[in-house]
């Protein structure tokens, strides 16, 4: 079965990195995967989109995703400027402090607070992958941790990597409908 995901964030928040982590984790969970950014001239702060396709079969599509199964929103301020529900087939997963009601089934988690608590900086992109894992059950925490090692293992500091993994777990546990 094909699952399509859209990640909305702001330039610099790491929406593209989040898409890569989902793709790598899904691959470890035995799926075919494809992650790509909404190609463009990203500037810090401008709205950024990244996409992921996951499937148990060969993926035969490279078009932009207009009707994603899931929409992940990294920054609550995007709720005002974009229609985060646009084309969404299943659910929207939002990083925000309180329960909100959108047109589609909505999950929320205060990932920014969790990130500040654990990492000490408002880096929510990696943590929000945990929310995606909990909501969909498509990818496992174990694979996400492996994906984080793959992406940051060579360059990142071990304690920062560990903090990110902890944030993933915390967000995984905290996400609510």
């Amino acid at each position: 079965m094909l699952t399509e995901v859209r990640i909305l964030g702001r330039g610099g928040q790491g929406a593209v990195t989040a898409s890569q982590i989902i793709a790598i984790a899904a691959f470890y969970d035995g799926l075919q995967s494809q992650a790509f950014p909404m190609f463009g001239v990203e500037r810090a702060g401008s709205p950024v989109r990244a996409y992921v396709r996951l499937s148990d079969k060969e993926i035969k599509d490279r078009t932009e995703i207009c009707f994603p199964d899931y929409s992940i929103v990294l920054d609550p301020t995007l709720l005002q400027s974009l229609n985060v529900c646009e084309g969404v087939k299943k659910s929207v997963i939002v990083n925000c402090t309180r329960c909100i009601s959108l047109k589609k089934e909505t999950y929320y988690v205060d990932a920014t607070s969790k990130a500040m608590e654990i990492i000490g900086k408002p880096f929510v992109n990696v943590a929000m992958v945990g929310a995606f894992a909990k909501v969909t059950g498509i990818i496992t925490l174990k694979s996400i941790n492996k994906a984080i090692d793959d992406l940051f293992g060579l360059k990142g500091k071990p304690e920062v990597i560990q903090k990110n993994k902890d944030a993933v777990k915390a967000v995984y546990d905290a996400v609510k409908k």
């Binding site: 898409s19 793709a23 691959f27 075919q32 494809q34 992650a35 790509f36 950014p37 190609f39 490279r62």
Partner: peptide, 10 residues
Amino acid sequence: GFSLTHVWEP
């Protein structure tokens, strides 16, 4: 360009 160069896949 982008359509393939920036795609992550196995």
